[in-house]
Each structure stands twice: as C-alpha cells, then as structure tokens.
Simulated assay, not measured.
Amino acid sequence: MTEHSVPAVDAADLVRQNRALSQQLDEALAQIEDLRHGIEALHDVGIYTYRHPLENAVAYKDQLAAIAAEVKAQIEDGRAIEVSTRFTFDNSLAKGRKMTADLAKLMLRAYNAEAENCVRYVKAGNLDGAEKRLTRAATAIARYAAMMEMQISPAYHQLRLRELALTADYQMKVQEEREAEREERARLREEQQAERELAAERQRLEKERAHYAAALAALTGEGRDDERQDLTARIDEIDQRIADNDYRAANIRAGYVYVVSNIGSFGQGIVKIGMTRRLDPMDRVRELGDASVPFGFDVHAMFFSDDAVGVEAELHRRFAPNRVNRINLRREYFYTTPAAVKRELDQIAGNILQFVNYPEAEQFRSSEQIRARETESTEMAAAE
C-alpha cells in the first residue's frame, strides 16, 4: 500500500458503526420522549401550554359550538365512517351495503361514546392521556371491522381530537379568568381601602388645622409673637401634609414599592416585588403574612414613588425570566436575591437610602433553633 492509498472498507466496522449510530438514535429518541413527558408533567404543577390559544373563554365556547355542528354534519352526511363500496353479502352488493350501514352505526356509537367520555373528564393535566385513549378506541374499532374495510374517518377522528384539546384549553382559560377576577377584586379592595384611608387622613388633618387656626385667631391682638409663629408653622406643615395627601389621592400611580421575602415559607432566593397605595404600606405587608403562610414577611425595601406603578412594572420586566409562576403574571414572586433587586432599583429609581440585604426572619430562625435543640436532646437521650 502506498503512502496515499485508501484503506479497504471493513464490513465488520461498518456493521459496528451502524449499530452504534442506531444506538445513538434510540437514545436521542428516548431523550425526546423523556422531555415530552417532562413537559406534560409540568401541567400538574401549574404550567400549561395552550394547543389552540384564543383570547378568552367565550371564544373557546364558540369554537366548541362550531365543532359540535361539524360533528353533527359529518355524522348526517355519512362522513364519520369510511366504508368500502365493494363489500358483498351473499354475492349481493345491496346486502353488503345494508350490513356495512348497520355496522357503521354500531362503530360510530361505540366511538362517540368513548369520545364523549373523554371530553367529559379531560382536564389540563390529562389531555395527552385522553387523546391516546380516543386514538386507541378508533384503532380497536377499525381492527374489528378490518375484514369489511371500515374505519373511523381520519378527518372525523381529528375533529374529535381537536374538540378534546379545545375543551382542555377552555377549562384552563376559565380557571385563569376566575383567578384574574379574584386578583382584580383584591386590587379593587386595596384601592378602595387606600381611598378610605386617604379620605380619613384628610379629615383628620382638616380638624387638626382648624384647631390650630382657632388657637391662632384667639391670639390676635394679644402679642405673644412666639406662640403665633409656632402655630403658623404648624398650620403650614399641616397644609403641606394635606397637599401631599390630596396628591396621592388624585395620582393613582403614586404609592409605595416594596421588596419582601419569607424564607420560612418559601425558602432562600425568592422575593416578592409589589406596590401599594395604602396610607401605611406595612398594612399590606402584614396582610401578605396572614394565616395562609407560617411566617411573616421581611421587608428589604419600602419607598414612596410618584410613579410606583412604573417602577414596579420595570422591575417585573427586568426579572421576568426569574418569575416563579410563568403563567399567572399577577403572582409577583421571583427567583432572585434582595441584593440583585437593589442593583436594579438603583438604576431605575436612584440610590435607595434604606435597603436590608439579609432578612431577619426572627420567628423562623428561632423556630429552627428550638427544633435543633429538641433533636439534639432526643439524640442524647437515645444514646444514653
């Protein structure tokens, strides 16, 4: 063999290479299948991908009504079952047509019963299983009628599969709209509470101002300049507070932006970024830490902004890839750290004077210490 000769092809090597490539293909297909099952499993934890995205539940109902009309039309037109025109019985095409027509009714009744059952029980998390179940039913029915060359029409089967997917989408959309309604009601309640608090504060300030104004009027003509100056200063201060209060009442974008965490309830690395128009923003934080969570929230930042809505929206945009719930965007929890939020806040709103990087989490840490001591005591008692 010369220096540049091409070596002879070894058949055994080709067989080995082919076997290796086949194994790689099988492994790749298995990984794809695992990924597909993983995506389906995410449905159970709240992540759902719409097969047929539509605007709202009403649009899904319209689509389902159109499908129901098409199902009825295909059945009436005889398009739901594919039937051979060559089947004979007793050497008679007429008898063969009658027999296939009778069998077609039985096949369609069995298939439709399965389809209706799948539609009745389909949910966002079991759509794939329902589709496989209906496809198996169509395959089984076709197998029993194979001798007569009859089967469920593929077009009719695809129509019923589309009905299944739309039904699952519709149910998820209804849930989302109900959740959105609950969130909107909660938002309106907070807005109304903020309006009541601001109105009550203005009334209190007006009474306080009237008190000082009456006291100032009583001093007219009596000298006592120091007291008059003090009362005038107090009235000016109250006027400014009234103006600030009126500004907040009129400007719906003004409010407090807050950054909070709850490591006892959600663990490390999760923060909530929100805003409130409440007169005392800590009222909102206390509401978040109600009986639905085992521990209260720790506040990392709480600051007033003339455009709290804009600051909150920009923070949400920057941390969008870190959202805990990627479906319900009204859930304002993010996989990030307080320090990371502070870096973004400094760019958006300027340097924040007060920011706590590390949560105190007093009750949580105390509970952990108690638990550790109890465990240590139990282990020592067992060792003795």
Rank of each mutant, 00 (worst) to 15 (best):
E183M: 09
E181R: 09
E179A: 14
L188D: 11
E191F: 04
R143E: 15
D169H: 02
A146R: 13
M147D: 14
A180T: 09
A145E: 06
R187D: 12
R162V: 02
L161E: 04
I141M: 06
E197F: 10
M147L: 12
E176N: 07
R204E: 15
E181D: 08
A194M: 11
D169M: 03
R162Y: 00
E181Y: 06
R185W: 10
V174P: 07
L159Q: 02
A180E: 12
E195S: 11
R160E: 05
A186H: 10
A155W: 00
A140S: 15
R185E: 07
E191M: 04
E183L: 10
A165K: 08
E149D: 13
T167R: 04
A146L: 10
Q193M: 10
R185K: 13
A146V: 13
Y156H: 07
Y156V: 03
H157M: 03
S153K: 02
E190N: 02
K173T: 14
M150F: 06
L188S: 11
E191I: 08
A186W: 06
M150G: 09
Q203S: 15
E195M: 09
E179F: 12
I152E: 04
Q192W: 08
L161Q: 07
A145Y: 09
R182D: 06
L166M: 05
E201R: 15
L166C: 05
Q151P: 01
E179T: 13
I152A: 03
R182Q: 10
A186R: 14
A165H: 01
R182G: 09
E177N: 08
A200Q: 14
R182K: 11
L161A: 01
E195N: 11
I141V: 06
R189S: 05
L161G: 00
M147E: 14
M172Q: 15
V174F: 06
A145C: 07
E195H: 09
E191P: 01
R189P: 01
A145K: 05
E179D: 13
P154S: 00
L164S: 06
E183P: 02
Q175I: 13
A168D: 05
E181L: 11
M172G: 08
Y170V: 01
R182P: 02
M148D: 05
E163F: 00
Q193A: 13
L198W: 15
D169N: 06
R143G: 12
E179V: 10
L166W: 01
L198I: 15
R182S: 09
E191D: 11
Q171M: 11
E149C: 04
